[in-house]
Design a protein around this nucleic acid. Sequence first.
DNA 1: CAAATTACTGCAAGTCAATTGCAATTAATC
DNA 2: GATTAATTGCAATTGACTTGCAGTAATTTG
Lengths: 149, 149
Amino acid sequence: MKTKCCDTHLSEEEAQELLSQNGISRTKIKTSILLLLSKSKKPLSASEIYQKYGPKNCDISTIWRTLKQFHEKGITREINLGEDFFRYELKDTQDEKDHHHHHVRCRNCGDIKQLEECDLSAFEKMFSRLGFKKMEHYLEFTGICSKCP
Amino acid sequence: MKTKCCDTHLSEEEAQELLSQNGISRTKIKTSILLLLSKSKKPLSASEIYQKYGPKNCDISTIWRTLKQFHEKGITREINLGEDFFRYELKDTQDEKDHHHHHVRCRNCGDIKQLEECDLSAFEKMFSRLGFKKMEHYLEFTGICSKCP
DNA sequence: CAAATTACTGCAAGTCAATTGCAATTAATC
DNA sequence: GATTAATTGCAATTGACTTGCAGTAATTTG
Ligand SMILES: [Mn+2]
Ligand SMILES: [Mn+2]
Ligand SMILES: [Zn+2]
Ligand SMILES: [Zn+2]
């Protein structure tokens, strides 16, 4: 299956299929977290998921364990937007080479927008079009170095 | 004064001048942390600084307070390289618009290299030149949105 | 230079995101 | 349906980072 990142609105069946394909038990909680992520227009934090799903319905540690598992299976990506916690969102594709996207977060109000364009030279124009000011960017890389397998 | 980021090798006098210019007391600890940052070829974590400076010589909370102050004064930048803590380094310039740089971290051995080039299109070539494989990048933005002052 | 003011520091306690051990419960496998 | 493996809740724990307070050192002022 090919997921399409945030705001994908997976159906319950699609969510469960995605779980099965990745060797994860199709439980109510895991399905619900997947649906929440797929319905959100921005990456969600663990505690946001906890609030949305309902503190009566599930323990926060279960949410953490689920997010960790999703990340290990390559279903999700974790994102640092200058806050003191991570946010999580569905990967655009399982491969992550095919397509991905980035975000802007307002340093004043905290609002987060998703950027569909990833042509790096096009970013500047896009920001002024969006009315954003005082941009700062955060760009770092990881890879496997020449000394490593 | 114009600092030149990591690996600048400030002299003790230059370090103290930088403190004074930013309204920070010229104490032994603050001077030493500044020197450590200026002599390092990669951004340092709080606990690395603590180890290098010597746990007998200073409390870790003082290091945290100092790093926070440096950041507030705009002397340093904090960097997330996919670890579960931040690293800190001297800004290339106080303004941060003039010049900045990025990093690669090996996902296998954790080694960190500093990238002097910031032409985004030039990155790919540079990585293969450096022998890096399986690159992943991390690019996010912050700014002030159109609804904010 | 000495007094007054302000900033810095060590120590201990606290916060909060994220992890973990264990026993009970549920899902997958046969 | 019985067996096995994964998931869950709860409580305790880790580790990064913060904070209050009382003592000390640095800066300012006369
Ligand atoms: Mn997104
Ligand atoms: Mn650097
Ligand atoms: Zn805003
Ligand atoms: Zn390596």
